[in-house]
Computed example of a mutant assay.
Amino acid sequence: MDIIQYTRKGGVIMQMSEAAELRKAWKEKGDPPCDHPGYHPKEYHLGTSTGDRVCTVCGYSGHPDSFKK
């Protein structure tokens, strides 16, 4: 599965549908714990920001404060 991250003014973004694909693949791997390492791109749905960030490892989507800094 190839996840395409788009670059927009302000950084890299990920479409909501791509995050859903990542979550599905992660669950197929047994849904192991993830500490959400690395960069967390902004999540977009139909061209509009959801206000959430996405873990590029497991696909978790949540408020930016829910990720470790």
Rank of each mutant, 00 (worst) to 15 (best):
M1T: 11
M1E: 12
D2I: 03
D2S: 03
I3N: 00
I4Y: 05
I4H: 12
Q5H: 11
T7K: 15
T7R: 15
R8H: 07
G10T: 12
G10N: 14
G10R: 10
G11D: 11
I13H: 09
M16D: 07
S17E: 15
S17W: 14
A19F: 14
A19E: 14
A19I: 14
A19K: 12
A19S: 15
A20T: 02
E21W: 11
L22D: 13
L22A: 15
W26T: 10
W26K: 11
K27W: 01
E28G: 12
E28S: 09
E28T: 00
K29Y: 10
G30A: 09
D31M: 12
D31P: 08
C34H: 05
D35Y: 14
P37E: 11
G38R: 03
G38P: 15
Y39N: 05
H40L: 13
H40K: 15
P41V: 08
E43L: 03
E43N: 02
Y44Q: 14
H45R: 14
L46F: 04
G47I: 08
G47C: 09
S49I: 10
T50H: 02
G51Q: 04
G51D: 06
D52G: 00
D52S: 06
R53W: 09
V54F: 02
C55A: 12
C55P: 06
C55H: 06
V57P: 01
C58Q: 01
G59L: 05
G59F: 03
G59D: 03
Y60I: 07
Y60N: 09
S61L: 03
S61D: 04
H63V: 02
H63T: 12
P64Q: 06
P64D: 11
P64F: 08
D65Y: 04
D65Q: 01
S66Y: 00
F67S: 01
K68I: 11
K68W: 05
